[in-house]
Design a binder for these strands. Structure first.
Lengths: 226, 226
DNA sequence: CTCAATCGTTACAATTTTGTCACTCCCTAA
DNA sequence: TTAGGGAGTGACAAAATTGTAACGATTGAG
């Protein structure tokens, strides 16, 4: 559940955004009314996105943004700036300071939701846990590791790529030529037994589960559950 | 066989993309030179992906994108936007309107192919994005490949894991012990120069971009943009 | 400035990975 | 039933990867 930090000194606006967020999806909303509050909240709660008004009592929005982008912990949190209409300079400064998007007040809630959704999605997709779990298999793309019933199994990178191709679309037969292209980068339909050999090695390492890699004679291979 | 719709008023560019697509794999390519053509093509042929230039005669790219995302039939088609270099606002508006990726002109055909493959693949197999794109870097976790400005670079699996750890949290210093654990599985703080050597090899392969891996003396390493 | 700690770099040998070959085995179409 | 093509298997040598040791360079605290 993504966490959004809203920084604005007007309670009305915070409520408006918060309401729209809740209507849209399950977001956790944190609010802050001034710059210092915003910085502590950002550091302590690590929100997934910050909506930052530039007009703030105390430390202004630009300084907050600058501070955020300087902190190692808060650096990568996307920031959407809310600027007063026409204040082009603010907007430019904000972008220069690392804001990821901006919107002029008064803004359309719909548009803000759109931008929030996009930014949250984008940053999530850059570090989402890339784990494929099917039956007894657990493939972790981040550490290139396979676990079978929790038992770690060492795969070479070629074996990992090959298994990935197969397990990604369970039940779908992957043609030899496609596998040779995706795993080895072979572009022509080269006559080679390399694929067969690697399938053999893979099956061997999968032990009892080896037969889950099925042969489609004349076509290629597929990974089948059960 | 995936269908790609290319929308650009320059025939040269359409041909360039089309050619590269055909070299890569069996794609069906449809072309459109202006916005209206694009919308009709998208509705009638339901392509698997749309490459959309923002600079178009008649209806501009942003409006095309908006229209696409409003139509129930075309809503879920991934869109890659081509923007003029440095037009940050276009890019932001585009992402806000629901584009799935963007690329600045002039672009490297190889990089575009990578992103097309990623998006087509993603929508075919309901999985999250496995491509990390930061600056000139494009890491594809599915094929364990790194591309720098579209140029493919061979990494060993250890190098890939190491780069992944660093690039996943840009600007954040990763401690030596953490890296040794995540990449090598070393649980104790072993005294070893292995990490240093691998960092060296990685920097070497990154060429001009090697210095983006910064040393944090006494702590570890971090990946820094710029 | 000095020195100790840390990092960069090179070289090298052990190990692992990889593709190919030469079979054998099995499936299937005729 | 049989012949032919595809797939399984084991062995092997070339190539790539990897960790370590040795030494030089750099850093920063005092």
């Amino acid at each position: 559940m993504p966490t959004i930090l809203i920084v604005d000194d007007e309670e009305d606006i915070r409520d408006l955004i918060s309401m729209n967020l809740h209507r849209e999806k399950d977001y956790t909303v944190i609010e802050a009314a001034d710059g210092l509050e915003a910085l502590t909240a950002a550091k302590e709660q690590s929100p997934d996105l910050i909506v930052l008004d530039l007009m703030l009592p105390g430390m202004d929005g630009l300084n907050v943004c600058k501070n955020l982008k300087e902190g190692t912990k808060t650096k990568s949190i996307p920031v959407i700036m809310l600027t007063a209409k026409g204040r082009l300079e603010e907007r430019i400064d904000g972008l220069a300071l690392g804001a990821d998007d901006y919107l002029s007040k008064p803004f359309s809630p719909k548009e803000l939701m759109l931008r929030i959704r996009n930014l949250v999605h984008r940053s999530n997709s850059n570090q989402g846990s890339d784990v494929i779990a099917i039956g007894p298999f657990t493939l972790d793309k981040n550490v290139l590791k396979l676990a079978l019933e929790g038992e770690e199994i060492d795969l070479t990178s070629t074996e990992f790529k090959l298994l990935l191709c197969l397990i990604e679309s369970p039940g779908v037969t992957q043609e030899r030529a496609d596998l040779l292209k995706r795993v080895w980068g072979y572009n022509d339909m080269i006559q080679t037994r390399t694929l067969d050999t690697h399938i053999k090695r893979l099956r061997e390492k999968l032990g009892d589960y080896g037969p889950m890699i099925e042969t489609s004679r004349g076509i290629g291979y597929r990974f089948c559950e059960s």
